[in-house]
Design a protein around this nucleic acid. Structure first.
Lengths: 193, 193
DNA sequence: CTAGTTTGCCTAAAAGCTTTAGGCAAATGC
DNA sequence: GCATTTGCCTAAAGCTTTTAGGCAAACTAG
């Protein structure tokens, strides 16, 4: 009967929107089918199963995020680049809470290695080159930045900072100042004793 | 028939264990019933519904975490306190991945205000007193630390840092060094221009 | 333009989860 | 010992996911 024109692509996009509306863990195959005016079983020709759908949404979100970040960082360096990168992440988290949540989905190693996540990591490394840290510390710094951005967006999204002053935006700005300052004055390991 | 001795308390504890085994979002009422050798409907006398159970697990985890932290921080100050606090969080996340995930559950404001989460926040403020930052910055710093610890544990738990060198423990140590250094040399807002 | 193949969406059905309603029996209290 | 409370039960409805098999629409020849 009348074909709607389902596609893996379209399902994933709709899934991302659904995630933004109801939360990533409330993404439900049957709701998606409902939205397309189609029976649930029909989706299973385009997507292996619920898990597969979620993984695809995660990869899609990572891709979007990496694209936006690449744009934002292009032509910038130092604190400018750091801020631009960080803001893309936070803005994306605000605009698309479900997708960021998706981007945090645990992927199996091969999938992760083939995802846009590595592009994001490379960008962070590129930004850090502006601060020239010795090698082992560069990795530590990547992890610090990743943790902080991720954690901040996560707590902010969970409502952790709302209804308390100073407002969350102010903290974000000062935290970026602080991280920039930290990277410019990266400490050497304290001597034990 | 033979009574098993169900209790809200016991259900929550078992739920926490289940969360650690299979992940917080795989905590399922029927699995819990199975483990108690009891029919599913029986749980509904002790717990309002699935959401209620999850909320209780979250509150339980926050309580545990706050207790452990309070112990660890007692009698310490400065970097010592910071490190102790941070390590409790990370160790807890390693030992109880499901519970930390639970602790990150979005709670409605009143529930959150009555939770052990506020105790955790107070402890962080107490630790920061050792670094004496001017007031607005103290809040920013609380948020930075919270985000970083939370984010690090989250990424580490998601396998983000595994199978890449240097090992995750090394980064953690250096990140704590860096945060301590940052707090001791907290920057003033850069002048715009 | 028709014949054959692919592919999209369908119906049917099994199996699992959540939640409510109502009932019997065990534990508790007087 | 009797009444009440409370714990666990059965039954049932309404969701969800997932597999299997079928018909028809849309491509792909010739």
């Amino acid at each position: 009967m009348a074909r709607v024109g389902l596609t893996t692509e379209r399902l994933v996009r709709a899934g991302a929107e659904l995630a933004d509306e109801v939360g990533f863990d409330q993404v439900i195959v049957s709701e998606l089918a409902r939205r397309f005016g189609v029976k649930v079983a029909s989706l299973y020709s385009h997507v292996k199963n619920s898990q597969d759908l979620k993984t695809r949404i995660a990869l899609f979100a990572l891709e979007e995020l990496a694209d936006l970040s690449a744009d934002a960082v292009a032509g910038r360096a130092g604190k400018d680049a750091l801020t631009a990168f960080a803001n893309v992440y936070r803005d994306y988290a605000h605009a698309h809470p479900g997708r960021v949540a998706a981007a945090r989905l645990r992927l199996d190693p091969e999938t992760a290695a083939a995802s846009a996540g590595v592009r994001l990591a490379q960008m962070m490394r590129a930004i850090l080159r502006g601060y020239d840290l010795p090698e082992p510390d560069q990795t530590h710094a990547v992890r610090l930045l990743g943790s902080t951005f991720h954690g901040y967006a996560s707590l902010e999204g969970a409502g952790g900072f709302s209804h308390s002053s100073p407002d969350s935006g102010a903290s974000w700005t000062r935290i970026l100042d602080a991280l920039d300052s930290l990277l410019r004055n990266w400490p050497t390991p304290p001597s034990t004793g």
